[in-house]
Computed example of a mutant assay.
Amino acid sequence: MNAALRQRLAPARRGCGGLTVRVASEPCVLRCSGALWIPAHRTLIASDLHLEKGSAFAARGQMLPPYDSPATLAKLEAEVEALDPATVVLLGDSFHDRRAVERLGETEHARLTRLAEGRRWVWLEGNHDLEALAGALDRLTGEVVTTLEVGALRLIHEPQPGAPPGEVAGHLHPAAR
């Protein structure tokens, strides 16, 4: 069996346990961290970080361990360090609620700023963080968009009915069809 046919019939595993797949015509790597890597465009995509989810629950009396944001940022830092992407796209619901950016500690803000240095940093709007992103552009590095085209892919937070092949959506934590 030739290599092209083998690639088409059985996606290849990467060293991290990731899986190489083709979405529309784009070769992509499903990383074991949960991120998506598009090597041809040096683009790293992560979705539904829900930063400050723990503090949102704590404000309502449900105590969760207070290290969700630092732990999530550590995973993102590891991916950025391993791949050195030219672009990082956060595919919506990066913040758990509209006040999450305010509750995010200075250390975590500094970590996000360092991660964004020297690369394009894109926040896609999600259903949880629409207000958070709109009110925090002065505190966050990068740009905020509703959708983004990367090669043959169309990035969006919520899947659209009847979407053409190549739509990559977060929101479903994750799912494929």
Rank of each mutant, 00 (worst) to 15 (best):
M1D: 01
R8Q: 11
R8W: 04
L9G: 02
A10W: 07
G15A: 14
G17H: 07
G17R: 07
T20C: 11
T20P: 03
V21L: 14
V23M: 01
P27T: 01
C28H: 04
C28M: 05
V29P: 06
L30H: 13
L30P: 13
R31V: 10
I38S: 13
I38L: 15
I38V: 15
R42A: 14
L44K: 03
A46L: 14
S47C: 09
D48N: 00
H50C: 00
L51E: 07
A56V: 08
A59P: 01
G61W: 04
Q62V: 12
P65E: 15
P70E: 11
T72D: 08
A74K: 13
E77P: 05
E77V: 08
A78Y: 02
A78C: 02
A78V: 03
E79T: 09
E79V: 06
V80Y: 06
A82Q: 09
A82G: 06
A82I: 09
A82C: 09
D84C: 15
A86D: 14
L90E: 06
L91T: 08
G92A: 01
D93H: 10
F95V: 09
R98M: 10
V101T: 09
V101H: 07
E102H: 14
E106T: 10
E106G: 07
A110S: 10
A110H: 08
R111Q: 14
R111N: 08
R111G: 08
L112A: 02
R114H: 14
R120N: 04
V122R: 01
W123M: 09
W123F: 13
G126E: 01
D129Y: 04
D129K: 02
D129H: 02
G135W: 02
G142R: 08
E143H: 03
E143G: 04
E149Q: 13
E149T: 15
L153A: 02
R154Y: 03
H157P: 00
H157Y: 00
P159V: 11
Q160K: 13
P161G: 05
P161D: 12
G162W: 09
A163V: 06
A163Y: 08
P165N: 02
G166T: 03
E167C: 10
G170L: 07
H173Q: 12
H173I: 10
A176P: 12
